[in-house]
Amino acid sequence: MGQLPCYDALEWAMPESVPVRCPACRREHVYAAPSYPCACGAPVSPALDRLTAPAVVTHRVWDEEWVAVRCPACGRGNQWPRPELGCPCGTVLRIPVVPGADHRPVAPRTALDVVTAAALHLHRLGHRDIRRADQRPPSGVGLAARGLLAQVDPSVRPATLRDVECLWLTAMTESAECVYFSLAGYTEDARTRADTLGIPLFVLGPTGPPQPANGPADELHATGA
């Protein structure tokens, strides 16, 4: 599958900065656009629009939370969290990107794309210390953060009851919560068992960000980490 990017360092380099004024308190900020690792290993960052004023985030719409950016090194398109800045006054500002950078995301094309999408989603939910898990799961790739164990299954078969239970047992031994990401979805008994155990299930579809596949995932998506 290739080398997994180093998710220990999700505070990536910040190659571009723009001045930002909060419209609520008039405080001046300098916002630096974060870089994200493309599957090819090159850093990718959204191009910020210096001519457009930032918008205040008053409510959230899932489709507006992401922006697609193309890697200048290999041409691969990936989906990243839309740039935002939190002002100390409590206002959240959405930083505009250059027109043309904001479009529908591309489909995951490799197993590494799938793992990257899951790691970025966990980061978006509030986990900042994502890394490869110490224990390799029976299938797929294990990711870990403080108090969390995630399994990412990029295979073309639905995750099974055994897959879900193995993840839960491993998380129990580490006193951690757990979450499952699957590209091909889940069998019915796997969904039922996950609901009973309170394990969030997400599906990584051909387009778009990971989608909740059960009640615990809906709750996690709504509240974050």
Rank of each mutant, 00 (worst) to 15 (best):
87 C>K: 01
26 R>P: 04
76 R>G: 12
177 E>K: 03
121 H>I: 03
71 C>Q: 09
56 V>R: 03
125 L>D: 10
134 D>V: 14
44 V>E: 00
164 V>C: 07
39 A>W: 01
8 D>M: 06
112 L>N: 00
146 R>K: 09
10 L>Y: 02
90 G>I: 12
219 E>I: 11
83 P>A: 05
201 L>Q: 06
4 L>W: 05
19 P>V: 00
151 Q>L: 10
186 Y>W: 06
83 P>R: 05
209 P>V: 05
68 A>Y: 01
76 R>L: 15
81 P>W: 07
221 H>N: 11
125 L>I: 13
112 L>I: 14
17 S>M: 13
191 R>D: 14
86 G>A: 13
88 P>W: 03
17 S>Q: 13
8 D>P: 08
168 W>N: 13
85 L>R: 06
147 G>S: 01
78 N>G: 11
20 V>W: 01
48 L>P: 10
14 M>K: 10
202 F>K: 09
192 T>D: 12
188 E>H: 05
117 A>K: 05
45 S>C: 09
35 S>Y: 01
79 Q>A: 08
138 P>Q: 00
114 V>T: 11
186 Y>I: 08
139 S>R: 12
134 D>T: 13
84 E>H: 07
2 G>H: 07
166 C>S: 12
15 P>W: 01
61 V>H: 04
169 L>F: 07
49 D>V: 05
106 V>I: 03
166 C>V: 09
41 G>K: 04
133 A>W: 00
19 P>N: 02
10 L>T: 12
60 R>L: 14
79 Q>T: 15
112 L>K: 07
46 P>H: 02
110 T>C: 08
116 T>E: 11
26 R>Y: 03
150 A>L: 00
97 V>Q: 02
189 D>I: 05
37 P>G: 04
190 A>C: 09
194 A>C: 04
106 V>P: 10
146 R>A: 11
89 C>R: 06
78 N>A: 10
169 L>V: 12
209 P>C: 06
126 G>S: 07
125 L>Y: 06
19 P>F: 00
213 A>H: 05
209 P>A: 14
52 T>S: 06
202 F>S: 04
39 A>M: 06
143 L>D: 06
191 R>Q: 14
211 Q>K: 12
84 E>I: 11
189 D>P: 08
31 Y>P: 15
176 A>D: 02
139 S>L: 09
102 D>S: 13
7 Y>A: 01
116 T>I: 08
